[in-house]
Every structure is written in C-alpha cells, then in structure tokens.
C-alpha cells in the first residue's frame, strides 16, 4: 500500500499500483497511471478502451474477457499492447481504475 499525490489529492494504491478505492478514479489519475505504465500520450483510442472497460465493469461488475474487449472495441490484441505496453490487465485495467485482476496469473 502507498499513498500518492495526484493533482493535490491523496490517492491510495496497492503494491501493484492499482486503485484501492475505485471512487478515486479521475482523468488526472489516468494521466498519472499513463506515465507509470509507459503509455505515453493518451489518444482518443486509449480513451475508447478506458471508457469501454469502465462501462463494462459498471454494468457487469467484472472486467471483460480479452476476446470481448478486442471484439467490442475493434482493436486487435497487438494494437492494445501498442497502446498499453504492459497489456490489457496491468495496463488498461489499471488506467480504467478497475480492481486488480486475480486468479492464477
């Protein structure tokens, strides 16, 4: 656990740098995570993925399976990795403020 200052607000992160409280999510948080995960400049495509993940999570309470993410956003897995170098789970889900993926990873 650690506390970071993002635009003057204290935000709590777990060891892997995921948001502890999803309510803390904001566009400033995304910008902060973007530098952490070496995303670079946030483009329209990045936001498309981020908003898709957030909408899906709000609707179903889980992160979408990767096949579903690719199908619904129209991006290939390769394109997702080009946008989010650490991948859909550690990269995109973190930026979208989703809880940390669990299971046999």
């Amino acid at each position: 656990m650690s506390n970071v200052q993002i635009k003057g607000a204290a935000v709590e992160l777990d060891e892997d740098g995921f948001l502890v409280d999803p309510a803390n999510w904001s566009e400033d948080v995304v910008a902060f995570f973007a530098t952490q995960e070496e995303v670079g400049e946030l483009t329209e495509n990045h936001w498309k993925v981020i908003h898709y993940l957030r909408d899906y999570f709000q609707k179903f309470g889980v992160a979408p399976m990767i096949r579903k993410l690719c199908k619904d956003t129209g991006f290939t897995l390769k394109e997702i990795y080009e946008m989010f170098p650490s991948g859909p789970a550690k990269g995109a889900c973190k930026l979208a403020g989703l809880p940390k993926p669990t299971g046999c990873v």
């Binding site: 892997d16 990795y81 170098p85 991948g87 859909p88 550690k90 993926p101 990873v105």
Partner: peptide
C-alpha cells in the same frame, strides 16, 4: 498476500 500483478513491458505474463 493474495495475488500480485507485475510484469515486463510488452508481455502480459
């Protein structure tokens, strides 16, 4: 502790 998500750039595992 439960879980843990770390990795190297370009890989998901």
């Amino acid at each position: 502790k439960h879980g843990g998500i770390v990795g190297v750039k370009g890989y998901g595992g």
